[in-house]
Simulated scan of single mutants.
Amino acid sequence: MSDLKQTPLYDLHRELGAKMVPFAGYAMPVQYPLGVMKEHLHTRAQAGLFDVSHMGQVILPGSDAAAALEALVPVNLVGLGESRQRYAMFTNDAGGILDDLMVANRGDHLFVVVNAACKEADLAHLRAHIPEVVEIADRALLALQGPAAETALETLVPGVAAMRFMDVATFDWQGAELWISRSGYTGEDGFEISVPAAQAEAFARALLAMEAVEPIGLGARDSLRLEAGLCLYGHDIDTTTTPVEANLAWAIQKIRRTGGAREGGFPGADVILAKLETGATRQRVGLRPQGRAPMREGVEIYADAEGGTPIGTVTSGGFGPSIEAPMAMAYLPADLPEGTTVYGEVRGKRLPAVIAPMPFQPTTYKR
């Protein structure tokens, strides 16, 4: 642990009794004394505070930044309105996904948040194609998620309640400039807040002083995002999966598709556009295992209870505290409809699972 990087909230995590684990080169809290199950349910019922400062924060300055970044992603960024944010993904020449990211238009620059495990590779990728890339190293990133998030944050930062899902804005808190987006990765309404590192602990303490807010670790963050049907890079998406196979075609706007005004022009466009037209042979789907045994990452999926060869593999799986049942994601043949029963091999036994719609838990974003 001594060789790991620390976020600005490291000492606070230790004070709060967090169990710290290595994650993407950082010492991160996996859970607090409340425990993963209760942390998950508290976020769904009230509000959870997550430290996501390990993620990369990047600024792309200038009026040409949107066009430059659009050449690396299959997403409409030139048309992204000021004070709005959009989900995007870096693709490679084979149409695979290098990383997924959030892009915000903050007027005179773009603010980009990338995954921690891909941060260095993403920065190198950006610098190879875009003249000016500024890594932000002196700010923390917090996520406040859950139905009480709006009331809690509005108490400290008046005005945030007026924001809609995927809005971004700048606010002041005791002299600290906060960059806030109404977004998150739990399926709940909530906010992500970039705060100067020097004020991060004081700001976190102010939120945690509220009865509705509890600190939440990586364990519950993972079960929350899985219930919401959201991908985890390196597990559900990677360089071998295209956005179409990953069921992320909704993120590719019409203007970047075949026949659109800015068709293609991104790495792997020929592969991705072809799959958009003809469909992929495999697709990321939701699974509801029948019974109580979870089907975790790596479990092979079969069409039949006995014999045959695997038709796919689970990429994420676990128990959903909110749905009170196991859940999983897997890549399976695209011609299998929802409701189809397949079989996962768990400890030498084939157990049934039904292909199910996602999200497993309804989302509550403020539209």
Score class of each variant (00 low, 15 high):
Glu135Asp: 11
Glu135Leu: 12
Glu135Gln: 14
Ile136Gln: 09
Ile136Arg: 08
Ile136Ser: 01
Ile136Trp: 02
Ala137Ser: 14
Ala137His: 08
Arg139Trp: 10
Ala140Asn: 06
Leu141Gln: 13
Leu141Trp: 08
Leu141Ile: 06
Leu141Phe: 08
Leu142Lys: 07
Ala143Met: 12
Ala143Arg: 02
Ala143Gln: 12
Ala143Asn: 09
Leu144Ala: 06
Leu144Asp: 11
Leu144Ile: 12
Gln145Lys: 06
Gly146Gln: 03
Gly146Thr: 05
Pro147Cys: 13
Pro147Glu: 10
Ala148Phe: 07
Ala148Val: 08
Ala149Pro: 10
Ala149Thr: 12
Ala149His: 05
Ala149Cys: 09
Ala149Met: 12
Ala149Ser: 15
Glu150Asp: 14
Glu150Trp: 03
Thr151Gly: 08
Thr151Ile: 11
Thr151Cys: 07
Thr151Ser: 11
Ala152Lys: 00
Ala152Val: 07
Ala152Phe: 12
Leu153Tyr: 02
Leu153Phe: 06
Glu154Cys: 06
Glu154Lys: 04
Thr155Ser: 09
Thr155Val: 05
Thr155Cys: 07
Thr155Trp: 04
Thr155Asp: 09
Leu156Pro: 01
Leu156Gln: 10
Val157Phe: 06
Val157Asn: 03
Pro158Asp: 13
Pro158Val: 09
Pro158Asn: 10
Gly159Phe: 10
Gly159Trp: 05
Gly159Ser: 09
Val160Ile: 11
Ala161Asp: 14
Ala161Ser: 15
Ala161Ile: 04
Ala161Lys: 13
Ala161Thr: 07
Ala162Met: 07
Ala162Tyr: 05
Ala162Lys: 13
Met163Glu: 03
Arg164Gln: 15
Arg164Glu: 14
Arg164Val: 11
Phe165Val: 09
Phe165Met: 14
Phe165Gln: 04
Asp167Thr: 08
Asp167Ser: 13
Asp167Ile: 06
Asp167Glu: 09
Val168Trp: 00
Val168Ala: 09
Val168Glu: 00
Ala169Phe: 05
Ala169Ile: 05
Thr170Ser: 12
Thr170Met: 11
Phe171Gly: 06
Asp172Met: 14
Asp172Lys: 14
Asp172Val: 12
Asp172Ser: 15
Trp173Gly: 05
Gly175Thr: 10
Ala176Thr: 08
Ala176Val: 07
Ala176Tyr: 03
Glu177Ile: 14
Glu177Leu: 15
Leu178His: 01
Leu178Trp: 03
Trp179Arg: 15
Trp179Glu: 15
Ile180Glu: 02
Ser181Trp: 00
Ser181Phe: 02
Ser181Tyr: 01
Arg182Ile: 10
Ser183Leu: 04
Ser183Pro: 08
Ser183Gln: 00
Gly184Glu: 01
Tyr185Asn: 01
Tyr185Cys: 03
Tyr185Leu: 13
Tyr185Thr: 02
Thr186Phe: 02
Thr186Gln: 06
Thr186Lys: 05
Gly187Glu: 00
Gly187Lys: 00
Gly187Pro: 11
Glu188Arg: 02
Gly190Leu: 04
Phe191Trp: 08
Phe191Arg: 01
Glu192Thr: 08
Ile193Tyr: 03
Ser194Asn: 06
Ser194Gly: 10
Ser194Cys: 09
Val195Trp: 00
Val195Asp: 01
